[in-house]
Design a protein around this nucleic acid. Structure first.
Lengths: 247, 247
DNA sequence: CTCAATTTGTTCGTATGTATG
DNA sequence: ACATACATACGAACAAATTGA
């Protein structure tokens, strides 16, 4: 009597296996040229059938990450350890130093708008009106983040064209007489909605890093607020834990 | 002619739908008692069949998040907006202030061990030997993080029992004559390995937040290093962007 | 009270994907 | 490669509860 296929999870086995093996390659468990565990070993470790292991390995081979050779084993072909991460800025300086070469693609622009849903302390208040833009940022013609931002309209009017065509924070430092008194960001992981997934070329429901930022001037007015979405696999955060907070 | 089932992605449709709807509930799109869109509306929005939508809603109903009533519609039962997040510390003070009530469960303890794979600057060096512990931290008897840590054995020997039974960093502040000169942490999102998933009661391949921390003393010796894994859905990071780095 | 519209519940048949042995 | 079992997903038709005109 054939055993029923006991599905440990919801994700197909061969994909789980693919993800795990790819993670290991990215983590550098084996060097380029080294031999990874044999198919029987992987069968034992993951408790799957031969065909299933092969299916996962085939995906990696198609990517050019590994190479299978009969009688030899499976070797690492391509170095995946330098995975392409977006390093999320953790200070205002870093944030404003964003490379100016990024060309945002504007999906949507609205004047006289309100703030997006960003956590704001009770002692801060909104500006009379904002420009609201929804944009996609591309890197190598691949979308890598989706932004819904609001900028104090009075500031926007000083350099509308530049604000439309460049990262807002990098333009902000050109504006004279602007005093940023508070800056915060909050990161959580959640599922991509249908249209969010479309803009980022990922799957609906896939995990994304949801980053919410706000900048406040010395009068307690929120001059900038944004919700930024990244495919979570491409996000990295480096934090210096020895810091003193200003203000 | 029945259309072939076009699988948009790899994750089953009903799960994608479940994730998205749950995210919307967590984001507070509808208040408790309010009616969410009808099944035909959801069918149209997501482009799925009736049964598939129902399958996703059933999962939410099982959780007690919603309630479906024939002829009436589907209403929000439980408030998911106050999701239980683990707030990741972003400074050493916060890190050391960890509540002492957490009871780690030790999976593994090894003396005379080496450092885990944590990014270390070239001007810092390892201690002669470390205690290496693998532990699971529980909250409400539910596992919420998995730690693989290394602590300078000379420091461990000063209070071995306390170091075994409590969060290491909270015990570290009791050690006299210790000068922490550098502290860093790095966060990335990746896939859970087989045994990692088992310890965290999640599925293999599910996204996890991989946090790597290190502490260095005033002589440039790495006294503590750890790889901590959280189910990524339960992680939140709040950052003050206006900081000045010490050192 | 009746009727129609809306909403969820149930059940077919069919096709395809996944996984085993 | 093959036979088998189970999961996923669609579309369609019909049933049952609720609401309001």
């Amino acid at each position: 009597m054939p055993l029923p296929a006991p599905r440990a999870g919801t994700q197909p086995r061969y994909l789980q296996l693919y993800e795990v093996l790819r993670s290991r390659l990215e983590a550098g468990r084996w060097r380029t040229g080294e031999t990874i565990p044999s198919i029987p070993e992987l069968m034992a470790e993951f408790g799957t059938a031969r065909v299933t292991v092969r299916q996962a390995l085939e995906m990696l081979e198609t990517e050019g990450a590994i190479r299978k050779r009969r009688g030899v084993g499976t070797t690492v072909e391509r170095d995946l350890t330098h995975g392409r991460w977006v390093n999320l800025p953790t200070s205002l300086e870093e944030l404003m130093a964003t490379i100016d070469t990024i060309k945002p693609q504007v999906l949507n622009l609205e004047l006289g708008a309100t703030l997006p849903e960003v956590p704001i302390p009770s002692d801060e208040r909104a500006a009379p009106s904002y420009v609201r833009m929804r944009r996609v940022h591309l890197r190598d013609d691949e979308p890598y983040c989706l932004i819904d931002l609001a900028l104090d309209e009075r500031i926007y009017r000083k350099r509308p064209a530049r604000f439309r065509r460049h990262p807002v924070l990098s333009v902000l430092k050109e504006v004279r007489g602007l005093q940023v008194a508070a800056a915060r960001q909050q990161l959580t992981i959640r599922s991509a909605d249908v249209d969010e997934a479309r803009h980022l070329s990922i799957e609906t429901g896939a995990p994304v890093a949801d980053v919410r930022r706000s900048l406040t001037d010395d009068r307690g007015v929120v001059i900038y607020a944004a919700v930024i979405l990244y495919p979570s696999r491409s996000v990295r955060l480096d934090m210096n834990l020895l810091v003193s907070h200003k203000g």
